[in-house]
Simulated assay, not measured.
Amino acid sequence: MPHHLLTAHADVATDAPARYAKQLLAHLGRKLEFTTHGATSTARIGDATAEVTIGDGVLTLRATSADEQGLATVEDVLGRHLESFGQRAGLVVTWVRTPTVDAEEPA
């Protein structure tokens, strides 16, 4: 049976996306277990999913959750820490909510 997923993303322009991703994952990795495939690292925060993707001149953060509270938690955790690490460089995380998508319930 399909269920609704809430998603949000933030594209943070930086000349050092790999460095900021490494710092963010190392810091959060003390409490979260990230798996990395290619340029994307993923972790669960409660029932929500956090993704960090290294791009060319951009670090993309993505939050996915079945509920508003989970989405807000991922946005807060990823955004607050990245802005803290990138304060000197003036990094600003601006989340963009995307329309709800239907996903199949895991079997």
Rank of each mutant, 00 (worst) to 15 (best):
M1N: 11
P2A: 08
H4C: 06
H4P: 03
L5A: 13
L6N: 02
L6V: 04
T7N: 12
A8G: 11
H9Q: 14
A10H: 02
V12A: 02
D15S: 14
D15A: 15
D15Q: 14
A16E: 05
P17L: 08
A18M: 13
R19T: 15
Y20C: 03
A21P: 06
Q23T: 01
L24A: 08
L25V: 12
L25I: 13
H27F: 01
H27N: 03
H27V: 00
L28C: 08
L28Q: 03
L28N: 02
G29N: 08
R30D: 08
K31V: 14
E33R: 15
F34V: 09
T35N: 06
T36D: 09
T36C: 13
T36R: 15
H37S: 15
H37K: 15
A39D: 13
T40A: 09
S41T: 10
S41Y: 09
S41W: 06
A43D: 02
A43H: 02
R44G: 05
R44T: 08
R44H: 14
I45E: 00
D47W: 12
D47C: 11
A48E: 09
A50D: 00
A50S: 07
G55V: 12
D56P: 06
V58A: 13
V58L: 11
T60Y: 01
R62L: 10
A63W: 00
A63P: 01
A63R: 02
T64C: 10
A66H: 14
A66Y: 06
A66N: 11
E68Q: 10
E68C: 08
E68Y: 06
G70V: 00
L71N: 03
L71A: 05
T73F: 03
V74E: 02
D76G: 04
V77K: 01
L78P: 01
G79H: 04
R80H: 09
H81W: 05
H81L: 09
L82D: 03
L82R: 05
L82K: 05
E83S: 12
G86R: 02
A89D: 12
G90Q: 05
G90E: 04
G90T: 04
G90A: 04
T94Y: 11
T94F: 06
T94M: 10
W95E: 05
V96W: 06
R97P: 07
R97N: 10
T98L: 12
P99D: 14
P99L: 07
P99S: 10
V101Y: 10
E104R: 15
E105R: 15
E105L: 15
E105V: 14
P106L: 14
P106N: 14
A107Y: 08
A107I: 09
A107V: 13
A107C: 11
